[in-house]
Design a protein around this nucleic acid. Structure first.
Lengths: 99, 99
DNA sequence: CATATATTCACCTCTAAAGGTGAATGTTTA
DNA sequence: TAAACATTCACCTTTAGAGGTGAATATATG
């Protein structure tokens, strides 16, 4: 989960995920197009997203097609939800005690 | 949102948040007790959580009491949910086209 | 084959986090 | 006031991400 959260902590990487979510499969070059940073930097971001299993790659000839895999986000969202539930439950218990 | 996600990307910091969610207000020393790392390291983690507004501090005499503030997590969870919805919707559209 | 395009690899700089140690500050209590 | 405790501040080392440039590799197309 650590790698997933660190991966989505960066706005460039969230933008890449948003692009893949909205438009589906896309080449590395196309994914990089909206950004002013170099292609190499985008490639590094993509590698981090792959390491977190948020992005998968399909190679066809000289083109590398990227796809979104949102599944690893589930564990992170579940953690946050459980934390909030735990916190809310404790507040409720506290109110009971305080009358 | 970046700082919040980076903050929760670390397991030590998630453990601190879990402790505060389950047990409510706690002193820095008590929060640090379960960890083998030094008090200074824990203090640094807490400072990052404060910067992300996930933790608030109340000073009483020589004791600093920490509380959880889960609210900044909402934006992060909302982003993830929207991403998944967008992705699922696109899959649906794709199925329509493919028959 | 030669050229253009796509992607990666190798290397560099800068910045910041993680962890540590030791001293300084502030607060309580005997 | 002196001693004990809690917290922070200042500084150091190691590691890693963000960004860049330029070269190497692989593929497609004239």
């Amino acid at each position: 989960m650590d790698e997933v959260l660190a991966a989505v902590a960066d706005p460039t990487r969230r933008a890449i995920l948003g692009r893949l979510a909205a438009g589906g499969e896309a080449r590395v070059t196309d994914v990089a197009k909206p950004f002013t940073i170099s292609l190499n930097s985008v490639s590094k971001h993509i590698r981090m997203l792959e390491r977190a299993r948020l992005v998968t790659r399909r190679v066809a000839g000289r083109e590398h097609f990227l796809s979104l895999n949102p599944e690893p986000l589930d564990a992170a969202v579940a953690w946050a939800s459980e934390l909030k539930e735990l916190w809310a439950w404790r507040l409720g218990e506290l109110e009971k005690v305080l009358g």
